[in-house]
Every structure is written in structure tokens, then in C-alpha cells.
Design a protein around this nucleic acid. Structure first.
Lengths: 242, 242
DNA sequence: TTGACTTATATGTCTAGACATATAATCGTA
DNA sequence: TACGATTATATGTCTAGACATATAAGTCAA
């Protein structure tokens, strides 16, 4: 039998404190600029030690919900519209999540010495070798996106002998490269002849372009350009999702 | 005089521990799946208490760099390309950051009862009133983006009497609404006659579209649609930026 | 009024313990 | 061999202290 008020002893104390404060901020009860109770006040309110409330507040500060200032206290921060978590899912995951059948097709693969354009695109200076891959992802046999990728072989030598006819280079890399950082650039273009044909859309139709440049501790790994039919595809980014 | 190895006693111990581990992960020295030393081993290595290494590891877990499993240990996670922090800056900040002069111009403002299309766009069911705003942001007097916005007056009644002829609705809202969540959708279109004229580009030129839907604890606040010339504007998202 | 100095205080970090809990590994039994 | 019970252990949370440090606020002199 549980107590009358339903003890709900599931979450730990520091998480409850964090959730309590987060709720007051998100509902507007504690607006931006509001000084939330001092640690010693929360200690008294929750009847716990300072380290416990400190952990709750530290996590809120890490999430940019509050700002902590020595001697002054902790303050609710202004919402920051400008920052959003953009999910760029793995192509297969993205398509299967839509309940559609994922399809992959290798269009071209070439191993070559870097051209000046390749070096420009990869952001490297020295000459070297790359694998250039063109492939297409489809959903229910309808073109979903075309991919145009360069892999720097000086960083990922194994890619020279990898078989990309069945496995998309993106997932291959995900399993063969230990850790990476990436930069994304998003823009819009209209389809030229080749793009239109590859995506099975009209010439002049809008396309969304995502360019991703990936590296690991200052070493370039890959540069990829993804072209989506612009009117069908949508990227959804949710801010401050709990 | 500092010691030979350069003591560098600036950062606190837990931050040093966190940075040490992060570095090994990022350089690939500890690849995905690698079991990082147990807490008690790190305690021995750094000569500190368990709470200190626990704080370092907890933050790495929060940042999704490692995964912690009871009784098993802590493991380096696989890199997660699919998540990137997309910065959608405030328009003025974005333009001034480029070293250009920001300009704002109100094109139209209308207070009206919601149409079915408005309700669809705002995701509300009940009838009500909205302010519909169209405006233009420019950089060095060149059109930079056009904005088309609805504000739900049942959530933000003050917006009815706000003066949007000088202040963009985005910054007005930022100062009048306590805290919000948002969802962004990005797509591409080609400019129709009106868009082409507003952005001073050719009909049929590509445009990048960002739609943002904002709410506060389940209450709709605003829906905004931003149109950028697609070949000039770029959104940059950086993943796992230190 | 202004600037320099002092003080009070809230947060930042850390310790040396404690018990809770999930679970990998082992052991025992059918 | 397969499965259920037991045990060992790494992490999860928490405490009651401690000292460090940045800084808001007050004090005092020029």
C-alpha cells in the first residue's frame, strides 16, 4: 500500500528538484531574469544536503536553462531561439521511421588522386588520394536523396578496399571511424539536368542541399553532399525537447 | 618558475579529468566500445575522491560521449552524426555578425479572426484572433529574408497593441514571452512572383524556407515562415563543438 | 561623486565516507 | 545442457562537512 499522497518514489531526489525547477521555468512561473532560490533555501525546502541541490542546479546550468553567478545567485535565462537541435538522421533510419522501405544503389565509385577541386572541398592542402562515390537512397523505390561523397584515403585508408555496392558509405564510415566532428551547411538550389534525372524530378524543381564536412582531430575524413527533392523532404529540429 | 611539465593548474581537477578522457576519445585512442577505466582506477590515477571522477564521467555521459552501465563500466559511444546543433541566429545578430548593416521593414500587419488555414498552421482547434505580420529583413539594403508570421492572441494578447513598425516581431516576442519551445522545419522552394519581388530575385530562383512553430507548455504562441534566397544564404551547424 | 579598499556571501570544487541498485558472473540444480 | 538462484561489483545517489573564489555591497577617503 502506498501513502495517501502517492509517494511516487521512483525518481531520485536531485532529479525531482531539477524537474520541479524546470517546470516552473517552462510554464513561465519563473520568468527570464528571475532569481531562483539560493542553494541553502532549496536545501531547507527539500531537506537534503547542498551537494544534492547543487547537482540539480548544475545540470540546469549545463542545459542553459539557468545562469549561475557567484555571490549573486542563479537566474532563469532568456529562451534562446537561435539554437536548435537539428536531427539529421541516418538515411536508412530516417526512411524506415517513415514506415517506408529503404533502398540503396551505388551509382559510381572512383579511386583517384585529388584534384584541386577535391582539395578545396575537403579543406586539405597536400595532394593525396580519395574515393569519390555517387549513390542514391530511395524510399519505396522512389528516389529520396542522391549522395555525392569524397573520402580522404590518407585518413581512412581502409575505404579504398571497402565494398560500397551494398552498404552505403555513410554507415560504413560510422562503423570504421572512431570519432568525428562535423559541420553542416544547408542551402537550396534548383535541379539541373543531372540532378533532375537522378531524383526523378523536373529540371528547375527546388532541391534542399545538405553538405557535411567531417573530420577527426583536425584530420579531414569525408565531405558529403546530399540532395533532396525540396518540396517533399523536411528537416525537423526541436528546441529544448525534454 | 613552473615545473618542467608545466603544471597548468588553471582548470579544476574534474575538468582536467573530463578533458583528458574527451581527448582520448576524440583522437581515436579510445575507440567506440572501449571500456574506459573504472571510477576506482581513475581515483587511483588522479589521487582524488570518487565524487570528483564521478562528476567528470557524468558530464561525459550527459554529452553522449560515453555510456555508463552498472556493474559493467563506462564505454565510449559510437559517434552520432545524426545530431547536430543548428544555430538559427536572431536576424539582426546574424546580419551584424557578417559585418553588414541590418535593416527592417514592416510590409503588412493585420488583426483578424483565425481562418481555417491559420488554425491549421498554428495547430489549434478553437477559433480565435491572430495578428498576421509580413516583414522584410535586409543586409546593406539588400533583401536578406522575408518573414511571414502569425501570433496567437489568445496566448499573447499584448501583441494586438504592439508596434511592429520599428521592432521586428521576433525580438518583440523574445522580450514579452517568458519561455518557449520551438520546432523548426527546413525545406526548399522556388520563388513565385510575390516571393521573387520581395527578395529581389528571379522568379524560379531557389529559396530556403525555415518554418518555426513556437509554443509554451502546450499553448501555441507563434508560427513563422522565413524565406531566404537559397543560393546566397547558408545555415551552418556544427556537431559536438567543444 | 568617484575611486579604492574591505567584507560578506553564494557558488565552485572537493573529501571520505555511506547505502542503494542493476547486472555480469558464478554456482547449483534439474 | 539449460535454467534459476546467489554473489560480487561498478555505478547511482546522497551526506555533512571543508576550503576556494568571484563578486555584490558596503565603507571610507580624496
Amino acid at each position: 500500500m502506498s501513502l495517501a499522497t502517492d509517494a511516487a518514489d521512483k525518481p531520485t531526489l536531485y532529479k525531482r528538484i531539477r524537474a520541479d525547477i524546470e517546470k516552473r521555468i517552462l510554464t513561465g512561473e519563473w520568468p527570464p531574469g528571475y532569481r531562483i532560490p539560493f542553494e541553502h533555501e532549496l536545501v531547507a525546502r527539500y531537506g537534503c544536503s547542498r551537494m544534492t541541490v547543487n547537482k540539480a542546479l548544475s545540470e540546469l546550468a549545463q542545459a542553459d536553462l539557468i545562469e549561475r553567478r557567484r555571490r549573486a545567485g542563479s537566474f532563469v535565462r532568456r529562451p534562446q531561439h537561435q539554437s536548435a537541435v537539428l536531427k539529421i538522421a541516418d538515411m536508412r533510419a530516417e526512411i524506415t521511421a517513415l514506415g517506408r522501405t529503404y533502398g540503396y544503389e551505388l551509382i559510381g565509385r572512383k579511386l583517384r588522386a585529388t584534384t584541386a577541386a577535391d582539395r578545396e572541398r575537403l579543406g586539405v592542402k597536400k595532394a593525396g588520394k580519395v574515393v569519390a562515390i555517387t549513390c542514391r537512397h530511395s524510399a519505396d523505390n522512389v528516389p529520396f536523396a542522391v549522395e555525392d561523397r569524397l573520402i580522404d584515403l590518407s585518413s581512412v585508408p581502409d575505404a579504398a578496399s571497402a565494398d560500397f555496392s551494398r552498404e552505403p558509405p555513410g554507415s560504413w564510415l560510422l562503423h570504421h571511424v572512431p570519432w568525428t566532428e562535423a559541420e553542416h551547411t544547408i542551402s537550396a538550389i534548383v535541379a539541373d539536368d543531372r540532378t533532375a534525372e537522378a531524383l526523378d524530378i523536373a529540371v528547375g524543381a527546388p532541391c534542399l542541399v545538405i553538405e557535411r564536412y567531417t573530420w577527426r582531430s583536425a584530420r579531414t575524413i569525408t565531405a558529403v553532399r546530399l540532395l533532396y527533392p525540396g518540396d517533399s523532404h523536411r528537416l525537423v529540429a526541436r528546441f529544448k525537447g525534454g
